[in-house]
Measured scan of single mutants.
Amino acid sequence: SAVVMEEGSPGEVPVLVEPPGLEDVEAALGMDRRTDAYSRSSSVSSQEEKSLHAEELVGRGIPIERVVSSEGGRPSVDLSFQPSQPLSKSSSSPELQTLQDILGDPGDKADVGRLSPEVKARSQSGTLDGESAAWSASGEDSRGQPEGPLPSSSPRSPSGLRPRGYTISDSAPSRRGKRVERDALKSRATASNAEKVPGINPSFVFLQLYHSPFFGDESNKPILLPNESQSFERSVQLLDQIPSYDTHKIAVLYVGEGQSNSELAILSNEHGSYRYTEFLTGLGRLIELKDCQPDKVYLGGLDVCGEDGQFTYCWHDDIMQAVFHIATLMPTKDVDKHRCDKKRHLGNDFVSIVYNDSGEDFKLGTIKGQFNFVHVIVTPLDYECNLVSLQCRKDMEGLVDTSVAKIVSDRNLPFVARQMALHANMASQVHHSRSNPTDIYPSKWIARLRHIKRLRQRICEEAAYSNPSLPLVHPPSHSKAPAQTPAEPTPGYEVGQRKRLISSVEDFTEFV
């Protein structure tokens, strides 16, 4: 048969007729292969192709491409040299491709048809291009793949890379869960390890502090508590009631339409708007009261037996805890006409967050109470924005700035309102402590230090009264110190430094 060459192609190359033996071998191979691939376009007849790359030819070592076609129900084999250009295909004639002069020997084609199974398996396991790669995943090629499931790999992101949580363990979102698992493993320790309690022994800490320079003076030496005195035992138990972190309780009120001037209507609300609910979820963490331990979680007086509701929101960081007394989460009882059960919590909070959804101005004093010092007013606006402002009593104007209003988005509203309420509550605590000038409020841990110092002074006084020969370590507060001759004046800087060093040991009130 003659071949018409394309323009620009090399000279004529004689194409030899395939021997009958080659056709029989390739026909047997075509019957084993699956003929249901995917359909081509209507211009080209339905056909199945599979590209198999052999590394070497037997005796020649030339890479070839073998295409199996099922045109007219008769499979045909096409061998081509890759750099050459194939002729145009037609549905009426068999596929013809040019070969190099080196394939002119018909014996070479017979060798190609009689490829060993080793070469076929190696060509099938190679990388296939384009559409033949999808075909190689079918059941027909499963014989050339190794048996057994593939090893499982770690989760992959859409980009093909490992997620960040699997790369950096410290930033993994499941870090707290692993800590819980470690605690569970520790709890399952053997009885021999049960006595080993991690941490620092208080006796060891005391020993280090006792021999430090801070205890060089007799006034700073630790003293032993009497065991037989019940009054001192009660004082030590009272110390446990003062937490070592700051605590805040903040009221949250929802004002519906037409309720801006009605205290009873505001306290009777059992739910609010959708934006109000989203605002609550951002204030803190939802907790169930019956599962809380009052000595570990500050509840601000809420009952854990269901008297004040089942849930509330709280927030904490390293040095403070805040609980929100939310009116809509507290039960509304029919027998309580004046809502006294709610007001006994909300009316005693220094700061209230008022979500004013009424469309009218909310005035300070609508919720009557002796300790309502500051109101954080949240007014929802259009386009997911809110107006946040402050209202306070006249005696609080020096501590709280009420002249600045803020426009905040719904997303950042819980954070801004919480921070403003916490700052206002700190100012309210300082303002409330002014009624007792001898006990200015600095912080909870300073209050613990003052309680310890008062307890020490009482013990020293009782020891001096029981044994008059012992001198008083600290003179009583009601006694007057003996007159001392004025010492020589020293520079102001040295006096300030000495006073600062003494105050650092005794108390921190002056620095606050």
Rank of each mutant, 00 (worst) to 15 (best):
P471A: 09
T312S: 08
E397W: 04
C305V: 08
S466R: 07
S469W: 08
E506D: 11
L387Q: 06
G301F: 03
N436C: 08
W315F: 09
Q484A: 12
L399R: 02
K290N: 13
K290G: 08
F324D: 02
K290A: 10
F371A: 12
V297G: 12
D341S: 13
A322F: 08
I502D: 15
V416L: 06
S268W: 03
Q457Y: 08
N220D: 15
H478P: 15
N269W: 00
L283A: 00
D439P: 07
G492D: 12
R411Y: 06
S435R: 12
Y276M: 00
A327D: 03
E288D: 09
D217E: 13
I440M: 09
D318K: 04
H325G: 03
K333M: 10
E462S: 08
S358I: 01
H431A: 11
E397F: 06
L299M: 08
T312I: 11
D334Y: 10
S231H: 11
V297T: 11
R448N: 12
A421G: 02
V252H: 00
S389Q: 15
E397V: 10
E462R: 07
P475Q: 14
M396L: 14
V376S: 01
Q457T: 11
D439M: 08
N348H: 15
W315N: 03
D439K: 09
V374S: 03
S433P: 04
H345Y: 14
K368R: 12
S219V: 12
R500A: 12
D410I: 00
N412Y: 05
G282W: 00
L449E: 14
I353E: 00
L364V: 15
D303P: 08
T312G: 13
T281L: 07
L449G: 13
E494N: 12
M320L: 15
N261S: 11
D361A: 07
R456I: 06
D357C: 01
T328V: 01
F350D: 02
S389G: 09
V323S: 05
M396Q: 03
N356D: 02
S231T: 09
K499C: 11
L470Y: 14
L224C: 15
A327K: 04
L283C: 00
R498T: 13
L422K: 00
K406D: 03
P331R: 07
C305E: 14
K394V: 14
K444T: 06
E278R: 11
M426V: 07
E462D: 13
Q391I: 07
T328H: 03
V408D: 00
P489C: 10
H474T: 14
V408W: 01
K296C: 05
P222V: 08
A405W: 15
V416W: 05
I446E: 13
C340E: 15
D308K: 12
T490H: 12
V505H: 14
V495H: 13
Q391V: 08
L422G: 00
D291G: 13
D303Q: 10
C460P: 13
P437R: 05
F232D: 09
R339K: 08
H451Y: 13
R411M: 07
I326D: 04
Y383C: 06
E461G: 14
Q321C: 12
G309K: 15
S235E: 15
V335S: 13
N412H: 07
H431V: 15
G300Y: 07
G258W: 15
N386G: 05
V252T: 01
E397R: 05
A487K: 11
A427M: 11
F279K: 00
S219L: 08
T379V: 07
A327M: 07
V378I: 14
Y245K: 14
L264W: 11
S273W: 01
A417Q: 01
S466K: 09
P414D: 00
C305Q: 13
N467T: 13
L399S: 06
V408S: 02
M426R: 01
P414M: 01
I459M: 14
Q457A: 11
K368M: 10
G347W: 15
S229M: 07
V388L: 07
D246R: 05
R500Y: 10
L224A: 13
S268G: 08
N261W: 03
V351E: 00
N425G: 14
